[in-house]
């Protein structure tokens, strides 16, 4: 059920920022989808339709709290405050990319923003989150970790090992399950025997919640509660956010396995549109302001494309850089 009430702990600017961020992600991904021919990689996964989760969740943590991401990571990157110019350049494989063109779409990371990386391996984020949370706990840093993963990862063994360990050590982790209904072409109702995946939490003695509306405020409120609980030493929570992937699995996917009716039905539940209406109703913004936000967003994206085009291709002489941090000692005797 969608809550009509806007949270009182967020200022007007912060509430408007949720909208701006979701729109930025949406337009960014639209642009990527449009430019797919130029980007060339068939392995670019867009976040269109799922914006409410990354934005709502990241609004509930501090700037120096951590997140781990998935192969569908552009949204998390933007929501955590990453720069879209270096994101765009990375997806294009340019030197100016956040990973200097070494990682690409599936490995975008900004450690200066505590965004610990998109990850090409389904289910690999949560085990890494354990270590991040443990380090934070050992150093008394009072930080939390949001670990995003999908319904596909929900059936990976690594995730279950991670939930168990996080629970016995009461690690400050929020397991954010983005259930977009499909693991590539495999529907979640085929892949799992239960309706709400948050039920899994019970087996690990932790709280599990399902948000079945694609609503940024609901995500924010639920995650915030779990974050406070984790920060106070209560341990992890599993939060399932039901959503829908508007596009195919990735840029190469013709997406013939889902019906047009199903897709249209979900598009009616667009989280950005719904939130816009809510903001207008609450008189935080008006139509003119919305137009201004839309124009600014498109301008930002246009600029990122321009910057990306100007950014050089990575120098092939540097292809062996950064494999190791410490130089390989080959002294001989």
């Amino acid at each position: 059920m969608s809550s009509d009430e806007l949270p009182k702990d967020l200022s007007s600017d912060e509430l408007i920022n949720l909208y701006k961020k979701m729109l930025l992600i949406r337009e960014f991904e639209q642009r990527i989808t449009k430019d797919v021919g130029r980007i060339k990689s068939p392995l670019v996964h867009t976040y269109t339709g799922e914006e409410a989760i990354a934005v709502g969740a990241c609004a509930a943590i501090n700037e120096d709290d951590y997140i781990t991401s998935t192969h569908r990571g552009h949204g998390h990157f933007i929501a955590k405050g990453g720069n879209i110019n270096s994101l765009m350049a990375e997806i294009y494989g340019k030197e100016g990319g956040i990973c200097k063109g070494r990682g690409g779409s599936m490995h975008v990371a900004d450690f200066s923003k505590y965004m610990l990386g998109a990850n090409g391996i389904v289910g690999a984020g949560p085990p890494l989150a354990l270590g991040v949370a443990l380090a934070s706990k050992m150093r008394n840093e009072d930080k939390v970790v949001l670990t995003f993963f999908g319904d596909g990862a929900a059936n990976q063994g690594m995730l279950h090992e991670s939930m168990n360990l996080a629970a016995i050590w009461k690690l400050p982790i929020i397991f954010v399950l983005e259930n977009n209904m499909y693991g590539w072409s495999t529907p979640v109702h085929y892949a799992t025997p239960i309706k709400d995946l948050s039920l899994r939490a019970q087996g690990y003695g932790m709280k599990g919640l399902t948000i079945d509306v694609n609503d940024v405020i609901e995500v924010y409120k639920t995650i915030k509660e779990a974050v406070d609980f984790a920060r106070n030493g209560g341990g992890p929570t599993l939060i399932e956010c039901k959503t829908y992937r508007w596009g195919g699995q990735m840029t190469m996917d013709a997406d013939k396995y889902r019906s047009t009716e199903e897709k249209e039905e979900w598009k009616k539940k667009c989280p950005i549109e719904a939130y816009k209406i809510k903001l207008i109703k609450s008189e935080l913004i008006d139509k003119a302001f919305i137009q201004k936000i839309e124009e600014d967003t498109l301008e930002q994206i246009e600029l990122s494309v321009k910057i990306t085009k100007k950014s050089p291709k990575p120098d092939t002489n540097t292809v062996l850089d950064d494999i190791y941090k410490n130089p390989m000692n080959l002294g001989g005797n």
Binding site: L116, L128, A129, G131, V132, L134, A135, N164
Partner: peptide, 13 residues
Amino acid sequence: NAILGCAVGAAMV
């Protein structure tokens, strides 16, 4: 996997 996830994640930070 959780052991090494813990170790690798902690090393990353």
